[in-house]
Design a protein around this nucleic acid. Structure first.
Length: 220
DNA sequence: AACCAGGAGAGAG
DNA sequence: CTCTCTCATGGT
């Protein structure tokens, strides 16, 4: 019988401190949250490199960039027309309302959430990723892998967003760094062992890789 | 060469 | 509220 704490500790003994989210600044985190939607991180990295070609990625530079140029730069991340329009709108909206990511971070979580939720392109996971990784709010980010792992390890019968969050929040309290790293370790688990090696023969964390991907599934 | 990647929104039932 | 379709590139 696995517990959430055991899962967390098993991951930690393998991955330790991951340093997730990889970005030079909170502004770059926000760009990344849009670009990575249903897209592999390697494709996102290329887009971010292109954005960085003439200086750091800032909301200001994205907001003032011509849409066509932004589309061209982020093309490698897929869905580039949608993403370019949404990323530009989001960047301008944050600047208009708060002036900067730093001053947005000083507002209360609920207020910022209400603001972001009403922007097209910001769904649940993107919202939580911005809250946690760009603003430092204590929110656990639940992605596809997380739900699968929680279900297939037997941690939960039918994991839904709310119950996953509740359990993790009660384990890690409001420890922002721990919340960042738990999600980071789950990303690493999927990235390192569950994509190119579907059978996950040498997964370092007991049988967890088999649970983290659609390939090599047992039963749902 | 099909299949999928850290999703989100619009429309239908 | 729960499906289903669409958006699109790049790696395996």
């Amino acid at each position: 019988m696995i517990t959430l704490e055991k899962l967390h500790d098993a991951l930690y003994s393998t991955y330790g401190t991951t340093g997730w989210w990889p970005a030079d600044s909170p502004d770059e985190v926000i760009a990344g949250t849009i670009l990575t939607q249903n897209t592999s991180w390697t494709n996102v990295e290329k887009a971010i490199q292109a954005l960085k070609a003439n200086g750091p990625v800032t909301l200001q530079s994205i907001c003032s960039m011509p849409l066509e140029l932004l589309e061209a730069k982020i093309r490698s991340s897929g869905f580039y027309r949608q993403k370019a329009a949404r990323l530009k709108d989001l960047s301008c909206a944050i600047l208009r309302n708060y002036g900067s990511v730093e001053s947005m971070a000083m507002h209360h979580q609920d207020e910022v959430s209400d603001f972001l939720k009403n922007i097209k392109g910001v769904g649940q996971e993107t919202l939580d990723s911005i809250l946690l990784y760009a603003l430092g709010k204590p929110v656990f980010v639940v992605d596809k892998y997380t739900a699968r792992i929680f279900q297939r390890t037997g941690l939960m019968d039918k994991p839904d967003l709310r119950s996953i969050k509740n359990e993790v929040h009660s384990l890690l309290d409001k420890n922002t760094d721990a919340l960042k790293n738990f999600h980071g370790m789950i990303v690493y688990l999927g990235k390192d062992y569950c994509r190119t090696k579907p059978l996950c023969g040498n997964c370092p964390v007991n049988n967890l890789c088999a649970y983290a991907t659609n390939s090599g599934r047992h039963s749902d």
